[in-house]
Amino acid sequence: MAQNITAPLSGKVISLDIKVGKKVEEDDEALVIEALKMENPVYAPCNGTVKEIKVAVGDLVEEDQVLAVIE
């Protein structure tokens, strides 16, 4: 079953720690969103394989936006 990684707050993606096809474990750091000059790590919600990444470093994202899909 696919699960989305969504943005917990709006901000700018400043690093991506996942790659399509790579395995991730629950609570692994997936990417970092910068908001108010503060780095907010976003974690994988479950174990699985990264199926799709929908953002790139430098993108501005809104709260709840889907950032990546894990299967």
Binding site: P8, L9, S10, D27, A35, L36, M38, N40, P41, Y43, E63
Partner: peptide
């Protein structure tokens, strides 16, 4: 606030 909250639960985003 965000940092102290994250110490207890790293997936709790209190910043905004």
């Amino acid at each position: 606030v965000s940092n102290v909250g994250a110490e207890a639960d790293k997936k709790n985003y209190l910043l905004m």
